[in-house]
Amino acid sequence: MQLFNELKNLSAKHIKVNKQASQKVPSGIWIACPKCHQSFYHKDLGQYKVCPNCQYGFRITARQRLNWLVDSFEEIDADLLTDDPLQFPDYQKKLIKSQQLTKLNDSVLTGFAQIQSEKFALGIMDPFFIMGSMGTITGEKLTRLFEKATQKQLPVVLFTASGGARMQEGIFSLMQMAKVSAAVKQHSDAGLLYVVILTDPTTGGVTASFAMQADITLAEPRSLIGFAGKRVIEQTTGQKIPSDLQDAETVLKHGFIDQIVLRSELKNKLKWLLEFHQRRDS
């Protein structure tokens, strides 16, 4: 034990770094978890891309998530493109880059999916598409998803991941909050189920609209869920905020999340919930 402590207290000056050796290790082999800071071998992330130590779910694209989430999927509205309402400088370039990276037209993937025999409308936001920000097409795709689900009498399952409103689309981005909310309400009034899974990060205008309007609100472990950004809070109030203030676990404690679900268990959990809510009136 003594030896162990000494090792722990070794400072940089005691260690001669073999720089050549460290250069031989390709980057990406060792990964540090952004939440618990533990380092681990990259293969330990596994197919779900989860920290083996704290279960934090690394950010993944919508299509990566789709791979293991459902048994079948039929995409809709994949061709809608924003008409750049503010004619915002360099916005087009950003869009093209994100489209190539995520293989999506905008920050959410929508369609109809099946897990075994359970049919449902599915939306997955992509944190790599301009930070998952909500543009007009994001709002349009989600609105259409809820509208079509209402017509077809299907439940909606939505994975949120967003930095909030998309400032490049100004006030039109803001209006999406009201537009999608109205579609969610209509879907709900038709007696249909809406399950949301909050993933890292869910913030701003998305938290302040459809992320918080579901019948059942699940979250992935240690994902950041909040309204205002940490920096904005600290600058406005002049106070340091605890580092876990916006962790899903804290948000659950304050009463805004039903359950935290491991990524590897999501599919089964959804299947169970969808089955449970099978409409028995027909």
Binding site: I233, T237, L245, H254
Partner: peptide
């Protein structure tokens, strides 16, 4: 944008 607002569910 404050700590209490976050804790009480601003979103």
């Amino acid at each position: 944008p404050g700590r209490s607002a976050e804790e009480n569910g601003q979103g």
